[in-house]
Amino acid sequence: MFVPITEHDYLCSDMLEGFKIWIHSAEEVPRLKKNFYHAAYDSDVRISVKANLMMTSPSLIKNYSQEQRKCIAENEHNLVFFKRYTQRNCFVDTLALQTNKICGCVLFWMPRLNSTKVCSYYTEYKCVEVVENSLHNANLTTKCLPDCQSITYDAEISMSRIELKPLKNFVPTGFRIIKITVLFKDQQYFASLRSELYGTMDFMGTVGGILSLFMGISLLSVVEIIYFATIRLTCNLQKRNLAKKRMLAQQNILNRQND
């Protein structure tokens, strides 16, 4: 790419020369102020991308609440400005709503309604910074949990300087040159599955195995314990009561004969 020198604005680029690059899903709004890779002018930049897919088992979504499984499933959380829920979209959605509520306006990059005012950099920007800092201090991650099925990208960036002298006949006067190559690191990727570590049957099997190991107990032993604690105990008590009654009857017969 050939970039005119007159197009560069140091105020908008945090005093950096070049481009800010961020690899993200098409469903998310990037925050280049917070996260980005820097590609400087007069350099050859190569970015190797690796995809990470996180999935959640249906049984975990069905049997556990959001707080227990630490993620939000599809259609469980409705955002105001986004159709698709992601953790980053939830941050932006909450920030836009709180900024409009407190400051009466939003920044130009935030999602908004047609009637919402755009904040001025000179008058309302300080208010926007206060709102954003308060949201971060309020631990917004407890409200905006990760989505149960998400895809993220890890990137490795390498940069080398371009010698301009051999290219002086190809680069127009008043322009800067930059070359950016984006490629996948691997031809395939592996998905991660979020599932319960111990279910009800797993817990029962583990407890039974431990009891069998340390006590020699088995299912038949459990039945025997129940038998001796209920049926056998009741039968013994009944036999004892019958024996007492028989002895009393014999004693009464002997007393009558003696009389």
Score class of each variant (00 low, 15 high):
I23R: 02
P58R: 00
V223P: 07
Q66A: 15
M54D: 11
N75L: 10
G18Q: 10
A51L: 13
W22T: 06
A229T: 06
V131G: 03
S57L: 04
M54A: 09
S134T: 13
N114V: 04
C119S: 08
Y41G: 05
V182S: 12
N133L: 10
L140T: 15
A155F: 01
Q98P: 01
F108E: 00
N35F: 00
E132S: 12
E67I: 08
N258S: 05
T230I: 10
I72R: 07
I151A: 03
H24R: 02
R194V: 15
N114Y: 08
L97S: 12
I226S: 10
K50I: 03
G174L: 00
V130Y: 02
K20F: 14
N169Q: 11
Y64G: 06
A40Y: 08
I47Q: 01
C235Q: 09
W109K: 04
L16R: 13
L193P: 02
F170R: 13
T99D: 00
R176G: 14
M159R: 11
D259M: 13
Y125P: 01
Q68N: 12
V223R: 15
S134P: 01
K185V: 04
F170C: 11
R232M: 11
L167V: 01
D93N: 05
E163K: 10
M247Q: 09
M201K: 13
M159F: 08
L248Y: 04
N139R: 13
E224S: 08
D9Y: 00
F81Q: 01
L233Y: 05
N255Q: 14
T152S: 12
S48E: 07
I102P: 02
C90R: 02
D186Q: 13
K34R: 14
I162P: 11
R232T: 08
F203L: 15
V130M: 09
